[in-house]
């Protein structure tokens, strides 16, 4: 039986989540792994928005901020379980994305960029300024998800790092599965069609505004859930999660790896999450090297890392 590209991607991801821990020299790497999965979750949403539908957002960290602060605030003020708080955050993000997206998705290219940028900045400004509620720039604590304790009661005793590694890994697998389903579905086809030629898409009956809005809302939910996972994992959150640099990080991770495919995006996320860890060894040169890597990859491998590597490998075979 020939495996479809969707199953190949899922199997590779599954293997990655399951096998990597065998190579971990210390418990610290579980944390790094978990961070990669959480970032990759948000980036998968960017793949849907930018890779499938061809729309740019420079403000998606705003939704991550909503997801993160929902987990910090809702348990305290509404008495919700943290997991339900994450769901609430995702709902708020979806509604907000729908409201914001309707007017701004008419904009093209850089104009869409500045509008989404504005949205992200508004969110991060509220988080920074409403000190009574959010603690301002100092951030605030986030309650425990409580799932690790439950697992322990069932006899599965994981360290905090291990738990978040596997939990985030499973979340990423689910996120990837949904995104891959979408790719091959009628909606995914419509998104990719309007990416290819908006006019031709309209002529075959695609309601372009509506389909773009769907991609925007879905990607906002991905960002929101990613923010929630990050907050719950760190048990602490600061407004940086909603900052402009985080928005840029998401887009860069997706594009660097190869924005058209989920696997490429995960790869790009891994590289960009690991790079600073590696670069700390370079001390003060960290920023310099990071900027250099971003430029070099985009100049010499414009299709992104993974597609370019795959093409090289295929070229070597032939």
């Amino acid at each position: 039986m020939k495996l479809s590209s969707k199953h190949v991607t899922l199997l590779v991801l599954l293997a990655l989540v399951a096998i990597s821990p065998m190579l971990f020299p210390s418990g610290y790497y579980y944390r790094v792994g978990a961070l990669i999965f959480v970032n990759a979750f948000a980036v998968t949403g960017i793949v849907i928005l930018t890779g499938y539908a061809g729309q740019i957002s420079l403000g998606h960290a705003g939704f991550a901020g909503i997801g993160a602060y929902a987990c910090a605030l809702a348990p305290v003020h509404l008495g919700l379980h943290p997991a339900l708080a994450a769901v609430l955050g995702a709902l708020i993000s979806a509604v907000l994305a729908w409201l914001v997206g309707r007017p701004i998705l008419r904009l093209k290219g850089y104009y869409l960029g500045v509008a989404t940028l504005g949205f992200g900045i508004l969110v991060s400004m509220v988080l920074n300024n409403e000190r009574q509620l959010t603690g301002g720039p100092d951030g605030m604590e986030v309650p425990d998800l409580g799932l690790r304790g439950v697992l322990k009661d069932w006899g599965l005793d994981l360290s905090n790092g291990q738990f978040w590694y596997f939990f985030s890994g499973i979340c990423l697998l689910i996120g990837a599965w949904l995104a891959l389903n979408l790719y091959h579905s009628p909606t995914g086809r419509a998104l990719r069609a309007l990416h290819g030629s908006e006019i031709a898409a309209r002529v075959v009956g695609v309601d372009v505004a509506r389909e773009k809005l769907k991609a925007f809302v879905i990607s906002a939910v991905y960002a929101s859930v990613s923010g929630s996972l990050l907050a719950l994992q760190n048990k602490f959150i600061t407004p940086d999660v909603a900052g402009f640099m985080h928005s840029i990080e998401m887009v860069t991770m997706a594009v660097l790896g190869g924005v058209g495919s989920v696997l490429g995006a995960v790869f790009g996320t891994a590289v960009l999450t690991l790079l600073p860890q590696v670069l700390t060894a370079f001390g003060e040169y960290e920023q310099l090297i990071l900027g250099l890597v971003m430029m070099l990859v985009m100049i010499f491998l414009p299709a992104g890392l993974l597609p370019s590597i795959l093409r090289k490998l295929r070229g070597a075979e032939a």
Binding site: I56, Q287, L288, L292, M298, P302
Partner: peptide
């Protein structure tokens, strides 16, 4: 110039990369 014709989002990343690079160099 070497990236002429790249999609908008790649160009955004290149110029942001340049910005991080200049900032990092200045700090250094």
């Amino acid at each position: 110039e070497p990236a002429r014709g790249a999609p908008v989002v790649s160009l955004i990343i290149i110029t942001i990369g340049a910005s991080i690079f200049i900032r990092g160099g200045t700090q250094l």
